[in-house]
Amino acid sequence: MRFSFTEDQRALAGAVREVLEKTCPPEAVRSGPRPGPGWRALAEVGLLGAHVPEQYGGLGLTPLDTVLAFEETGRCAVPGPLVETAVAAPLLVPAARLAEIAAGTLVVSVASPYLPDADLADLHVVGALVAPHGELDLTPHPSVDATRPLTAAPGDWTSPALDHAALATAAQLLGLGRRLQEEAVGYAGQRRQFGKVIGSFQAVKHQLADVAVALEFAAPLVYRAAYALAHDAPGAARDVSAAKLAASRAAHRAARTALQVHGAIGYTDELDLRLWLNRVWALRPAWGDDGLHRARLRAALLESPATARLP
């Protein structure tokens, strides 16, 4: 398969990056209100309503149209249930509420398996159940990311929006991985040991190179999955699982390497690095952990006609 992103698709991603750099800097993510001005900015550029049909005030775009834009939202660690509201909710909530999503006035938390940012949400969605805030019996659940609190909800969380939301989450993980790579490379060029910057050490170069390779291998899988979903390809679910696995692992490698490059200070809240580390660890299990997507990928491969002919 050969394709390149269109000018419009790249322009949307560029607009998202531009507005988030202004409205969602690290200090706003760290201490600002959730979801904050970044949320309103994303509504204004159309990302919140990107997957809402045009007749309800949205843009009616495909996953391929928005995958680069969601990568940018990961890069900035945007607070709030963004994937749940902008990607999952248009597939799950009543049509009468879609215009509110496009306008940025309706916040939706969808279990995957836990409800993220349930305290902010106007609607809670657990499986096929859609309930207004306050109607479900919710229990706070520990979260590694203070900017993404979790809540446990009763019932089966399995959702028809799984593939679309998992793809958008994979794109966010890819963006997070790229941001962590930038932070690690930048710090390696400044931190000095034994009279030299640590970026000149061969061992550090190898680790940073491994991160770059992991991200470059994950990106085509994420883009392939977006293409498959946009064109309703028969193997779309398989491609999404491959993308989520690759992006999760690449982002985890980037997080681990960035932490090693920064040393002990990387564990502290003193650095903004903690924001991206926490978000990677929070998003890896969201919309299917590695075990779930490995199982889906294995089942798809074993059931394929080509694999069935193998001895």
Score class of each variant (00 low, 15 high):
residue 4 S to Y: 13
residue 6 T to M: 10
residue 7 E to V: 15
residue 13 A to F: 05
residue 16 V to N: 03
residue 16 V to L: 04
residue 19 V to W: 11
residue 23 T to D: 09
residue 23 T to W: 12
residue 24 C to V: 12
residue 26 P to T: 08
residue 27 E to R: 14
residue 28 A to W: 02
residue 29 V to T: 11
residue 32 G to R: 02
residue 36 G to W: 03
residue 39 W to H: 09
residue 41 A to S: 04
residue 42 L to H: 02
residue 45 V to E: 04
residue 48 L to I: 10
residue 49 G to P: 02
residue 49 G to Y: 03
residue 52 V to C: 02
residue 53 P to N: 14
residue 56 Y to L: 12
residue 58 G to S: 02
residue 60 G to D: 13
residue 60 G to L: 09
residue 67 V to I: 14
residue 70 F to Q: 01
residue 70 F to Y: 13
residue 81 P to F: 14
residue 83 V to C: 08
residue 90 P to Q: 09
residue 92 L to C: 01
residue 95 A to Q: 15
residue 96 A to Y: 12
residue 97 R to V: 01
residue 98 L to H: 03
residue 99 A to L: 07
residue 100 E to A: 07
residue 107 V to G: 00
residue 107 V to A: 04
residue 108 V to D: 06
residue 115 L to M: 05
residue 118 A to R: 04
residue 120 L to N: 06
residue 124 H to N: 01
residue 124 H to Y: 06
residue 129 L to V: 15
residue 131 A to K: 11
residue 133 H to F: 07
residue 135 E to D: 10
residue 135 E to C: 01
residue 144 V to H: 11
residue 144 V to E: 03
residue 151 T to P: 02
residue 157 W to M: 00
residue 158 T to E: 11
residue 160 P to D: 00
residue 163 D to Q: 12
residue 166 A to T: 08
residue 167 L to T: 11
residue 169 T to A: 09
residue 177 G to L: 04
residue 181 Q to D: 13
residue 183 E to R: 01
residue 192 R to M: 14
residue 198 I to D: 11
residue 202 Q to I: 10
residue 209 A to P: 06
residue 220 P to C: 00
residue 223 Y to G: 06
residue 223 Y to I: 07
residue 224 R to M: 05
residue 224 R to S: 09
residue 226 A to K: 06
residue 226 A to Y: 03
residue 229 L to G: 09
residue 233 A to Q: 13
residue 234 P to D: 10
residue 235 G to M: 05
residue 235 G to K: 10
residue 244 K to H: 09
residue 245 L to Y: 08
residue 245 L to Q: 05
residue 247 A to R: 04
residue 251 A to Y: 08
residue 251 A to T: 05
residue 252 H to F: 13
residue 252 H to A: 12
residue 257 T to Q: 00
residue 258 A to Q: 02
residue 258 A to H: 00
residue 263 G to N: 11
residue 264 A to P: 13
residue 275 L to Y: 00
residue 275 L to A: 02
residue 275 L to R: 00
residue 278 N to Y: 04
residue 281 W to F: 15
residue 284 R to L: 14
residue 285 P to T: 07
residue 285 P to D: 05
residue 292 L to C: 01
residue 293 H to V: 02
residue 294 R to D: 01
residue 294 R to C: 10
residue 298 R to N: 03
residue 300 A to T: 12
residue 300 A to N: 03
residue 302 L to F: 11
residue 303 E to H: 01
residue 309 R to H: 11
